[in-house]
Design a protein around this nucleic acid. Structure first.
Lengths: 183, 183
DNA sequence: ACTAATTAGTACGACATCGCACTATATACC
DNA sequence: GGTATATAGTGCGATGTCGTACTAATTAGT
């Protein structure tokens, strides 16, 4: 209908082009995704990143909205729950995130009263972190969503498949020294 | 040695504390990680995110340094290589990233001459994107590192295990409609 | 002991990311 | 055909993230 006229407008830099699909036709998420997965040069890495993003993305968004926590703050909270008395450096190393990011998260968490920071007597460079009461409560409230979402994500796999997935991940992580280094 | 004196300094807010390990003793990456993986409430999700981060993080850092491309720009480049003539909206949907992020990446890529933008004749709201010559060249240069790193990451798995990993990922992705939704 | 190298943490600045509000075009419905 | 709704994209402001450069404390080497 529009024909020639509607072209060469917009930002001015765009030229007109006729794409394959018709106006009414919409290319759905699933079809697009299939096309992107097919003959993908990094079949494992792409699929893994895709799943990881769609798993954690909405969770982080929810956390920022409902709990006013950033992703980095959550990482610190999570690590300290798993293993109290870590310092910022250790969290940085084990998560692969820059230490300045961890440091700013620590500062925020401390201001909110979710963690405490004490100087290590044996090495006064270290500031030893651990969760406060309210930090533990916040963690408990948030982790539920993570667990629930993982459950939903794995619903399509049977128990043996889930075990196999963990086993394969375990092998890759165990060999991390050989491949996970920076450039 | 320092004993009592060195405490209560630093930022002033930190109190002194004696942690479990001795000054000389260093807790290594592997040991820390093991402790964090043990009895993890989200065993699959944590391992997957860990691997995904250590796979893609250094690659993105390298890209920013060597090619002056952001992660979002790379995502656009990658999607357009897999399937030309997408528009920004479609890339946003299929990658799960906010459309404003894709939009700014598109603007940068266009300024650098790596992609072109043409208005769709059939629907003048759409700006159809595709790679320029130099865009293709840039992609080709970068993708090598991704392929190589995936190869290293999977070196510990035998061919059957690799196929199984792809198969399991495939099942999870195929069921994405059921679990990957936002809150 | 004294210096060099390593490790923990901080300060600061640049910028990518992202949510929100807005415009423009297209489709649906009556 | 005219209005309402959905879709594509933009502008802008806030802020989280991260690299660089720095200080403080500890360890190693001689």
């Amino acid at each position: 209908m529009a024909g020639r006229a509607a072209a060469k407008r917009g930002t001015g830099k765009a030229e007109a082009l006729n794409v394959g699909w018709q106006p009414g036709e919409r290319v759905l998420h699933g079809l697009l995704l299939e096309a992107i997965l097919k003959d993908n040069p990094i079949p494992v890495a792409y699929r893994m990143n895709y799943i990881a993003n769609f798993y954690v993305g909405p969770l982080v968004a929810m956390m920022e909205r409902s709990f006013k926590l950033t992703r980095s703050e959550w990482i610190v909270l999570f690590c300290l729950t798993r293993r109290p008395r870590l310092n910022a450096q250790q969290i940085s190393i084990v998560t692969g995130r820059p230490k300045t990011s961890i440091a700013s998260a620590v500062k925020l968490l401390q201001k909110k009263g979710l963690i405490t920071r004490k100087t290590d007597i044996a090495d006064s460079r270290r500031r030893v972190l651990h969760l406060s009461e309210s930090g533990q409560a916040t963690y408990a409230a948030i982790i539920k969503s993570f667990v629930e979402r993982e459950k939903q994500m794995l619903e399509t796999l049977d128990p043996a498949e889930r075990r196999e997935l963990v086993r394969l991940f375990g092998k890759i992580i165990a060999a991390a020294d050989a491949w996970a280094k920076p450039y």
